[in-house]
């Protein structure tokens, strides 16, 4: 089998109802259906999940390491977005 022709898929598994799907790994497959079956065989052999998502890796648009500064630095000087920034008297500090 020529795996170079197969596409790369990212696999996400929901381990339990109510929880988010979590990225668990990737695999090569011909199409979505095949990716889903492979994912089941490969990543849920011990009932690790109740639901699987497969997404073509090429369809994922991600931020780049080089962008980190302009993406996240603006949050650094905004400590007031955190609850701990506000100092309240002890008797009401549990709010």
């Amino acid at each position: 089998m020529n795996t170079e022709k197969l596409e790369l898929f990212e696999v996400f598994i929901r381990s339990k109802r109510g929880l988010d799907h979590k990225h668990i790994g990737s695999l090569h497959a011909e199409d979505h259906e095949q990716a889903l079956e492979y994912a089941r065989d490969c990543y849920t052999r011990r009932s690790e999940g109740v639901s699987i998502w497969v997404v073509k890796s090429n369809d994922i648009c991600s931020s780049q390491e080089d962008d980190a500064e302009c993406f996240y630095d603006p949050s650094d000087d905004k400590p007031y977005r955190h609850a701990t920034y506000y100092v309240l008297p002890d008797p009401v500090n549990n709010m």
Binding site: A83, Y86, L88, M95
Partner: peptide, 9 residues
């Protein structure tokens, strides 16, 4: 949680 605290403050 910060919303309530900033208001109270």
């Amino acid at each position: 949680s910060f919303h309530q605290r900033q208001g109270y403050e």
